[in-house]
């Protein structure tokens, strides 16, 4: 089935990016660069794993009239929207809190925020 392949591809992309996010978390030197890996890669990866759920549930709804599939798909879309909203806000809060509590970037060529003395 074509739909099965689409789901496998979405899951593959999602897991690849989530894995890269974890590797980045271990490899990068300080909190800010780690946040890059932790927010971007995991948001993108989780969106694709969720899209696989959406495709599966809508396909089940359309093909075999499985009504619980519709509600599962809509709920997953709402989860994706919340993920897109809350993930950058959380990263922003962590980065700001880290900077205010004195955790400076380890390898930085410039730090304008430290210069204004917040």
């Amino acid at each position: 089935m074509l739909v099965d392949y689409v789901i496998w591809i979405f899951l593959g992309i999602g897991l690849t990016f989530n894995t890269l996010g974890v590797i980045g978390l271990l490899r990068f030197p300080d909190v800010y660069t780690r946040l890059h890996a932790a927010t971007k890669a995991t948001t993108f990866g989780s969106i694709f794993t969720s899209l696989a759920v959406v495709v599966l549930s809508f396909w089940k709804y359309l093909a075999v009239q499985y009504t619980a599939g519709l509600s599962m798909g809509v709920h997953t879309i709402i989860a994706i929207m919340c993920l897109l909203l809350t993930n950058p806000v959380g990263a922003h809060a962590i980065a700001r809190a880290a900077h205010r509590s004195g955790v400076k970037p380890k390898v930085a060529v410039v730090d304008r925020l430290e210069e204004v003395g917040k």
């Binding site: 890269l20 980045g24 490899r27 970037p105």
Partner: peptide
């Protein structure tokens, strides 16, 4: 990000 995770080429900083 994938490229930077694998190669480790970074030149970070905070700009305004």
């Amino acid at each position: 990000v994938a490229y930077r995770v694998i190669t480790g080429k970074i030149r970070p900083g905070i700009v305004k």
